[in-house]
C-alpha cells in the first residue's frame, strides 16, 4: 500500500501524518508513507481541503484530521 499525505506543512498536516503512522503501526498494515508538499502536485489530486490522505493514488480523505482509530478503519477497509 502506498500512502501520500498532502499538505503544505501546516500543523494539521503533521498531525495527520503522525496519526496515520500510529494507525499503521496498530493495525500492522505494511505501507509506505510519503509526504507531498509541492502545491502543483497537491492540486493535481483535485482536493479542496488540506490535509488530505491519498491511498494508492485515490483520495480517501480531505480537509480534516480524523482520530487514529478512524484512520485505522479507513486503511483496513482499503485492503
Amino acid at each position: 500500500m502506498h500512502i501520500k499525505i498532502l499538505g503544505t506543512g501546516c500543523p494539521n498536516c503533521g498531525l495527520l501524518e503522525a496519526r496515520t503512522r500510529e494507525a499503521l503501526a496498530r493495525t500492522r498494515i505494511d505501507a509506505e508513507v510519503e509526504k507531498v508538499e509541492e502545491l502543483a502536485d497537491i492540486v493535481s489530486y483535485g482536493v479542496l481541503g488540506l490535509p488530505a490522505l491519498v491511498v494508492d493514488d485515490e483520495v480517501v480523505l480531505s480537509g480534516r484530521v480524523p482520530s487514529s482509530s478512524e484512520l485505522g478503519r479507513l486503511l483496513s477497509d482499503g485492503l
Binding site: 503544505t8 501546516c10 498536516c13 492540486v43 482536493v47 490535509p51
Partner: peptide, 15 residues
C-alpha cells in the same frame, strides 16, 4: 477557514 486550504480551494473552484 484554514489558511493552508486556501490554495487547493482556490484552484479547485477554478477547475
Amino acid at each position: 477557514f484554514c489558511s493552508c486550504s486556501s490554495i487547493p480551494l482556490f484552484i479547485g473552484f477554478l477547475q
